[in-house]
Design a protein around this nucleic acid. Structure first.
Length: 437
RNA sequence: GCGAUCGUAGCUCAGUUGGUUAGAGCGCUGGUUUGUGGUACCAGAGGUCGGGGGUUCAAGACCCCUCGGUCGCCCCA
């Protein structure tokens, strides 16, 4: 008989479980809490969008659009793309749902994204981001609010240490275009000295030559025209207001005049929270202002700012998460399964995580319960039709604090007291024997 | 898409210049011991040595191809 081959997972995808999943869930939960503090509404969006949503907004020449999208024709012949980022889909939803009426809108999303890239640490083909956007707000206060929120999120995740906020302005469209033209001219004059990669960038995205890592390019990049010389007075004032706001809010930042973002839609504020703890994947959270995007999708000119952060990258940076384990219930003798079920149900109804073991010998049961528990094991030692005698075992400090017995009647009301007592044991407060009442 | 490196049990790894039946620890399963029960002991299950081809009397080891992981480049969160 031919052996059945188990299909391998798709390259660049991952199955998350245990510690990895705990970290992931913690990042999402923290984000959900923090975004509410700032009044950002949640969103649920489709994973698939018409290909045009991304092609028009990110820029046809960007790597994401030209070679990294999962695009396919569906059975109706429409070109569909698995979303490679959030911003374009949010802008599309804003327009097709007529959300202009709610502007300015503070929105947040999280979920899976797809890019066909070479996988490595912190880079996957299916990856996940948290994302926050403010649509319909032209004032620098919106940029500041998003950055302050990002800063608080990273602090609450405990990863602000070693992560720095790099900030730049790309100016308004006129400033950006003038600067870009100057850069192209400058780099063309130094074509001979540029690396091969940068020669390709000169055609596609000349701004990116500025943060090339190639030592050949560094001296040329460092002597290149700087955006500051091309900023209009308005753009200067805007950037000044953003930095003043950050200072007022106590958010640390550093200017990085070479910081340009990869996607075409960015204007004015551009920023990245970077770390050196993730190898080649230095950016942990990044974003900026994209005042031109909504127009590109057929809407009226609408100012907007936003950022996104990779959940996997954040999850790799946070401290170890203690696994959340339940209280365990087991019995000393055989034939107590029914009462074990009753006790576990009572604990769960009382809001406590609980589980049970009924298989195996008494010593194996206790051993297993001990290992899988949160440190509290309820040992059901005897029972009558009305009473269940339980011993509360606190693993770890049994020498100092002898385990104590509690008797619960089988009446439902009495189980509430039991739940409260187990809750106390879970919290390692001094245990108090509760006499039968 | 380019370069480098690695792949042996569920996990972490050992495996000599190619040489009998591929090992250890942890984990898992069963048992013994103990007895308000834990750190002891015994036994067992579990391996296409990533996959395919080649060299050889003989390949986990050497060669080629391929798949996958990791690290850079690129890109980006």
């Amino acid at each position: 008989m031919a052996k059945i081959q188990t299909p391998q997972p798709v390259r660049g995808t991952q199955d998350m479980f245990g510690e990895t999943e705990e970290r992931f869930a913690y990042v999402v939960a923290t984000f959900e809490r923090v975004r509410r503090l700032y009044g950002f509404k949640g969103l649920q969006l489709p994973v698939i969008e018409p290909t045009a949503v991304f092609a028009r907004s990110l820029g046809e020449a960007t790597d994401v659009v030209s070679k990294e999208m999962y695009s396919f024709e569906d059975r109706g012949g429409d070109s569909i793309t698995l979303r490679p980022e959030f911003t374009a889909g949010i802008a599309r939803a804003y327009l097709t749902n007529g959300w202009q009426q709610f502007a300015p809108m503070k929105l947040s999303v999280h979920g899976p994204l797809f890019r066909y890239e070479r996988p490595q640490k912190g880079r996957y083909r299916q990856f996940h981001q948290i994302d926050a956007e403010i649509i319909g707000a032209a004032e620098p206060a919106a940029d500041v609010e998003l950055l302050v929120m990002a800063d608080q999120l990273l602090k609450e995740l405990g990863i602000d240490d070693g992560v720095t906020l790099q900030l730049n302005t790309l100016g308004d469209t006129q400033s950006r275009d003038a600067w870009r033209a100057a850069l192209v001219g400058y780099f063309n004059d130094h074509k001979g000295a540029l690396s091969e990669d940068s020669l390709a960038r000169l055609e596609k995205n000349p701004l990116r030559i500025l943060d090339s890592k190639d030592p050949k390019d560094r001296p040329i990049a460092e002597a290149a025209p700087v955006i500051d010389d091309y900023l209009s007075g308005e753009a200067q004032n805007f950037f000044g207001a953003v930095t003043a706001g950050l200072n007022a809010a106590g958010v640390a930042w550093t200017r990085n005049a070479a910081l340009v973002r990869g996607l075409d839609y960015y204007r004015h504020t551009a920023f990245e929270f970077v770390t050196d703890r993730l190898g080649a994947q230095g950016t942990v959270l990044g974003g900026g202002r994209y005042d031109g995007l909504i127009e590109n999708l057929g809407g009226k000119p609408t100012p907007a700012v936003g950022w996104a952060a990779g959940i996997e990258r954040l999850a790799m940076l946070i401290d170890e998460r203690p696994e959340e384990l339940p209280t365990f219930v087991t019995s000393e003798q055989e034939g107590q399964e029914k009462n074990v079920v009753a006790v576990v149900a009572a604990l769960r109804r009382g809001g406590l995580a609980a589980d049970s073991i009924t298989e195996g010998s008494a010593s194996k049961r206790f051993e297993k319960a001990r290992k899988k528990s949160n440190g509290v094991v309820l040992l059901l030692s005897a029972s009558t039709d009305f009473d269940i005698e339980l011993t509360i075992k606190r693993i770890g400090d049994w020498r100092q604090q002898p385990s104590e017995k509690v008797i619960a009647t089988a009446l439902q009301s009495r189980f509430d007291v039991l739940a409260a007592e187990v809750d106390e044991a879970n919290n390692y407060t001094p245990y108090r024997l509760n006499s039968r009442s």
